[in-house]
Amino acid sequence: MTALTVNDVTKVYGSGHTAVRALCHADLELSDNEFLALLGPSGSGKTTLLSVIGGLLSPTEGSVTIGDTALTELSKKEQTRFRANRVGFVFQGFNLVPFLTARENLTVMASISDAPRSEIEDRTDQLLEELGLADRHDNLPEELSGGERQRVAIGRALVSDPDLILVDEPTASLDTELGTQVVQLLASEIKSRGKAGIMVTHDLRMVEYTDRTVRILDGELLDGPG
């Protein structure tokens, strides 16, 4: 089954002579249970691509289909709901809610997604355990280390049991050892739960944990490890 289809997506920021073409006729397919690495230099359009795939940004041209839902056909409101239930996002800057504890940053999804609270609570406990945060669950983000925050962000992306997980530079602010740990963990979460996932990275060493690599340069996708 195809988990994701990106069809001829172009994204232009702004207009006139300040316009920036961040994505240029991008095509991409991802099947279930596939973990893809997206590699590219800074400013090449990696975050933009993830944002378009996750329904945070509307493409200027082209379409995105996740599972059997044509995301780009949905209204803003429906896209929001779709994100809540079907897409898990790990942002480049963690983006935890500072007034919620590690555990609450996961359980808040019970108020946001349509999943029953009990299911979210169960999965939260399980995820905190798997992510090695069991004894840090009552701490606020400001009391956590960078790696711990990163893991909480991964937990939040997984807790509502989405079909597609989008991870933006999970290792940027981590040292190699911790970075490897986090990526391994992510890979095993995606594999064991049968999800599809895309991970943006600069770091070639992380590629070995993924199934496939796609490169991006100036908004254009190039298949293969090149």
Partner: peptide, 16 residues
């Protein structure tokens, strides 16, 4: 605002 933006991004509706 940053928290609100995050929550919107993970699927919280404006209404919520």
């Amino acid at each position: 605002l940053r928290s609100f933006v995050t929550l919107r991004a993970v699927g919280a509706s404006t209404g919520y």
